[in-house]
Design a protein around this nucleic acid. Sequence first.
DNA 1: ATGATTGATGAACGTTTTTGCAGGAAATTT
DNA 2: AAATTTCCTGCAAAAACGTTCATCAATCAT
Lengths: 248, 248
Amino acid sequence: MLKKERQEFILREINLHNKVLTSDLCEAINVSEDTIRRDLSELAETGDIIKVHGGALSRSFHVSFQTNGVYSHDNKKMIAQKAVRLIRDGMFILTTGGTTILELARALPQHLRATFFTGSLPAAMEYIQHPNIEVIFIGDRISKNSKITVGGDAITKIKQINADICFLGINAIDAEHGLTDNDWDVVQVKKAMIQSSKKVVALTIAEKINTQQKLKIGDLDVLDIMITESDPGEKVFDAYKEKGVEIL
Amino acid sequence: MLKKERQEFILREINLHNKVLTSDLCEAINVSEDTIRRDLSELAETGDIIKVHGGALSRSFHVSFQTNGVYSHDNKKMIAQKAVRLIRDGMFILTTGGTTILELARALPQHLRATFFTGSLPAAMEYIQHPNIEVIFIGDRISKNSKITVGGDAITKIKQINADICFLGINAIDAEHGLTDNDWDVVQVKKAMIQSSKKVVALTIAEKINTQQKLKIGDLDVLDIMITESDPGEKVFDAYKEKGVEIL
DNA sequence: ATGATTGATGAACGTTTTTGCAGGAAATTT
DNA sequence: AAATTTCCTGCAAAAACGTTCATCAATCAT
């Protein structure tokens, strides 16, 4: 069998079945594993496939979101940087959705080995890009606005979780009125997440500080840490520190 | 034998078998390898064949695998068009993931009012774009390869559903061996989906027909309908029709 | 007619490509 | 932590390649 012929066979096999094992191909075509590996390397180099340990994957599935156009993007990146430092190997982590959480997902170090629970479609799409992260999706009805799961089933599931830390992308926070939001279903989910976590971290751009919405999630005392892009020493934060919230 | 005569023989041989080896030709025509090589070079220069190390390939056989994303994209679009016609307002619909299902999601008419259950992140992302569709996501661990939820929880949830119709994006189908796949977890999910649906529809490009993988999902009799881009009258489908599968 | 020219072919020879194998590194699994 | 699988690097043998050159036949010019 000619080399080119063989490579086209491999390519077809991958496109048809989304993945191939080196060992299978080697048996099917009857050449040494080294030859298959070399073929896969060449095909990967031209970008036709994705090579992985033990075989190769189809490129069709590799989708990623555009990151531009997000409001206050640089600030959110900085927040993500700070948040990542709270995460340790082996942790069980609950997260909501929102663009700030997406940045957190992108900022996760490659070597991190942890388990993420989320009900946010975009966040889950990001998490699964990471090689060593396990993703558990919380199912139920998907809210079209927020692209996260809401509903009784979801809440029941969340209550069964006992997470080390919870990252909330929040909508509004106020020293007096605490955490508020504008979607009843989302509020329920966030409440449940807070209950199910040992430590609760709020991520928000400084602009949202001392704003409020119609629906209450909880008082400030549910919060352990708040992360913004600003210097933790700033005066705005004094009221929060008094109520026991650590600022990063 | 004249030069021209010889080259025509080579061309015929290539069009017949899609490939030739230099060594074979050399033996068949009884000339030196150098002569064959010179012939192949000339034929390649006029664009009639593709010269490769060791021989040459037919140009027509060279599957033009496009780089712009999804394999066999147009075919999948056509499949989606056919599949959409099975959907009625008010239906409860179960779907797997896969690029063919994504096309189905994109082909859904704006006015359609239905409820979709899925465990596929990319499919869910598509569904929620539609104004009148309710999306229920089946939660559990997300498999990184297939971007679909897998695991006991997911299967339990699926079994509680009673869907009108189930669209399976399938990996391999064979008249004798039935539906097969290459990922154990995914197989379990698909089995559950089949059980929970009144009607089961398989979507696949014709190229996958009569291929098989290592793990069995079920025999052909679990299938009600199979949709491909080909004409339902084609001979390949006879074996499937005999086993009671309707072809669209 | 005869020498020159052209084109096709095969042989020679050095180069490149392909392939499998050995041995150690790296990753994955138990 | 140990064992297994997979990967990578270098190496060597075989196959295929391209280039050059010589031969031979057919054609052309004088």
